[in-house]
Design a protein around this nucleic acid. Structure first.
Length: 478
RNA sequence: UCCUCAGUAGCUCAGUUGGUUAGAGCAUCUGACUGUUAAUCAGAGGGUCACUGGUUCGAGUCCAGUCUGAGGAGCCA
């Protein structure tokens, strides 16, 4: 029977005097053969368990080592010590699972994030990662709540797809064909008609096209699922397997889209501030400590909490691509030739340009709209100027692009023309084009990289630290 | 994939111009102490200096290649 157990987060709120309290958790430290710091993952605040001298056998005390799992029964009493108001005076201590101190790699001290990445299966037992993953959970929950409250339908779009026309990068192939001796057609090509699905298939790079199908029946839908990109990207903000949120709304234009994206981001950040303040305070302090190591000019201008408050309480800056280029052209950075890459209308902005806009010029999230059509995807709605499309990217300080979206091209002729220009097969996407054949409507949507959002809210800087078991080039452990 | 930097004890790191037996703090183990807060004090054990090859009388140190990691860039969310 484990259900008498009370979680430490809940117990710490209670008044002293209760008897027969049962807690279970893992030992963080055991000080002075008397004081056990016990953690059960419900909060970073440890419960101090007091094993009074002489009350327990030496054999038992020796087994109370870092990360051993314990069941403790006792009385909640006011603490005589300074670090806590209440503590648990143990009457019974049971070792549920031993932890060999010679082999257990975590110590009660600061570890580097690089080292913890190598032992990702144990890093949840550190305060930093416990806070990150509680915040990650809260964000995921807040996302579902936000859309549910607005009457959106949660769609599960396929993970295996036969379409390679989504145009969002390299894909992972899915096949059951033997890779050493695949069947061949007469002209020597691999014969996918003999493969499991009877055609060439891949892991999805986006659920958007399927999302549009659902949106043109339900009105408002969203997807929230895993996404796979086989790009050889070795950066702090790319993964081969990541989670993406893709809302798609019928009867929405670009402005509706921006309004939704902005209120969405603010709403989920506010939810975390309302429900996980302890974790945010911890992460705020962690960031402050970490940045003390950096030279003054490399430090963030604001602390984590200040940054989040600012985002929630202020409107995002909204500018067009053309305005963005003009700001860059008139910037001191440009005049002093600080940019490595050329700035002129028509370029795909580089990281340094986006950084300048967000971190130097506006110092808050920026929504850039109406990009040149030549640098954007085929499905984005063409503007009347003939040069730009109704796209919008939200750029966040320290992260870069966090949201990418657009109003979709709902006009059949313009869409198919664009597909021909960009050599995208109309035959293969016949089902997608059907939405434009039968009751087409203005609609819009966006994609938000979930891990990038978690980075932003936790103040972490490497995306591999905000997903439990990161998949990236040469990395698929655990 | 490209550029830069790094790889020395379980962890974090020092190691001089190439020169005898490679060091420190923390962790671990042993003992002491006991209202501690990453407890403290004393002692002990712990190393294929990433790997392969080369230069040299002699390589942790110099050179080449490989692997791994970090930061930046590209691709993007």
């Amino acid at each position: 029977m484990f259900n008498k157990r009370i979680k430490i987060k809940e117990l710490l709120l209670q008044l002293p005097g209760q008897h027969d309290v049962v807690v279970m958790g893992w030992v963080r430290t055991f000080r002075n053969t008397q004081f056990i710091a016990l953690n059960d993952g419900s909060t970073n605040t440890n419960l101090q368990v007091v094993a009074e001298l002489g009350r327990f056998d030496d054999d038992l005390l020796k087994r109370i080592t870092t990360s051993a799992a314990l069941k403790v029964t006792g009385e909640l009493v006011a603490s005589q010590g300074k670090g806590q108001t209440v503590e648990l005076k143990a009457s019974q201590i049971e070792i549920l699972g031993d932890s060999d101190p010679e082999k257990y790699p975590l110590q009660p001290k600061k570890h580097s994030l690089e080292f913890l990445r190598e032992i990702a299966h144990l890093r949840f037992r550190t305060n930093t990662f416990a806070s990150i993953f509680r915040v990650r959970h809260a964000l995921a929950f807040a996302i579902h709540r936000f859309f549910h409250d607005k009457g959106f339908l949660y769609m599960h779009t396929p993970i295996i797809t036969a379409s390679d026309a989504e145009g969002a990068g390299e894909m992972f192939r899915v096949t059951t064909l033997p890779f050493d001796q695949p069947p061949r057609t007469e002209d020597g090509a691999i014969d996918f008609s003999q493969d499991f699905f009877g055609k060439s298939t891949n892991l999805t790079v986006s659920g958007q096209l399927e999302g549009e199908l659902a949106a043109t029946a339900f009105g408002d839908i969203y997807t929230f699922g895993p996404t796979f990109r086989a790009e050889n990207s070795n950066t702090t903000r790319h993964l081969a397997e990541f989670w993406m949120i893709e809302p798609e709304m019928a009867f929405h234009d670009l402005e509706d889209n921006m309004n939704l994206a902005e209120s969405f981001m603010k709403s989920i950040i506010r939810f975390v501030m309302d429900n996980n303040m302890e974790d945010l305070v911890f992460l705020d302090q962690r960031l402050l400590e970490e940045e003390k190591q950096l030279p003054a000019d490399k430090r963030s201008e604001f602390g984590l909490l200040d940054k989040l408050k600012m985002v929630v309480n202020n409107d995002f800056e909204r500018i067009t691509y053309t305005e963005a280029i003009n700001i860059l052209l008139e910037s001191p950075a440009y005049k002093k030739k600080k940019f490595q890459y050329e700035v002129k209308w028509g370029i795909d902005m580089q990281s340094e340009h986006e950084r300048y806009l967000v971190e130097k010029h506006f110092k808050k999230p920026v929504i850039v709209t109406n990009y040149p059509k030549d640098i954007k995807a085929f499905y984005m709605r063409q503007n009347d100027d003939g040069k730009t499309v109704a796209a919008m990217d939200i750029l966040a300080p320290g992260i870069g692009e966090i949201v990418g979206g657009s109003q979709r091209e709902e006009r059949f002729d313009l869409l198919t023309q664009r597909m021909r220009d960009m050599h995208i097969s109309e035959e293969e996407l016949w089902w997608y084009l059907d939405t434009r054949r039968f009751g087409t409507v203005p609609h819009a949507g966006f994609g938000l990289g979930f891990e990038r959002m978690v980075l932003f809210v936790t103040g972490m800087t490497n995306i591999r630290d905000v997903i439990a078991f990161p998949r990236a080039p040469k990395t698929a452990d655990f």
